[in-house]
Amino acid sequence: MTFNEKYIALKTIVIREVLRFTRIWIQTVLPPVITTALYFIIFGNLIGSQIGDMGGFRYMDYIVPGLIMMAVITNSYANVVSSFYGSKFQHNIEEMLVSPTPNYLIVSGFVMGGLARGITVGIAVTLISLFFSDLQIHNLWVAGSVVVLTSILFALAGLINGVYAKSFDDISIIPTFVLTPLTYLGGIFYSIDMLPAFWQNASLVNPILYMVNAFRFGILGVSDISLWSSYAIILGFIAALFIFSLYLLNKGHGIRT
């Protein structure tokens, strides 16, 4: 395939993925927006007013970056895992496998679909947050790059889950038992400075902590973690997950006999 043909193949997968989640926006975009709005109302407005300031900011303002990041993470992941497993389940993944589209473009196409949904939901949640907080962006480039890279990372993770999944149960196990606990413990609702020393150190093995804090730095200008450590962790995970995804597709794991 020429460069232009590869570009067309990639664009086709991305368009297909974007149409997939926008066609069912009531299932894909609306629920996280409603859920996050409830977080703002309950944790920010009702409970947050009792908590006071955190990290020098109103509690509501403090949790906004974390809640945006949580929506981006869960939606990027959910989009790719459900789309890839759905394609496997209906066997329409074979449409791509019989074509000359290289595997790295298949991985990239699905990931860009996940990125599109993550960013769409992230923007929607950000707009909702404007009703509850006076959102100021400290560093647009940091905020933007962290959210994009994090979305890519979890889209890749979703793809790997989709490759291994053998039933619809398998696509909800990781989000329920791994992703959600790590997200909640990743400093969305609190600063790890509040934790005892042991739990502060334990929190450092949670990669989501780095992403939430890097994004919080981009929005508020405060972070529990060094920005460069966060970038290194995110980029390291992206490289590892991309190589592993490609290996699985090249090997045909779960998709070729």
Binding site: M1, T2, N4, E5, K6, I8, A9, K11, T12, I13, I15, R16, L19, E95, M96, S99, P100, T101
Partner: peptide
């Protein structure tokens, strides 16, 4: 129509 058009795309055929 999308099923057919997408398949063409995987072969690098412009939309």
């Amino acid at each position: 129509v999308e099923i057919v058009v997408n398949q063409a795309g995987y072969y690098g055929i412009p939309r």
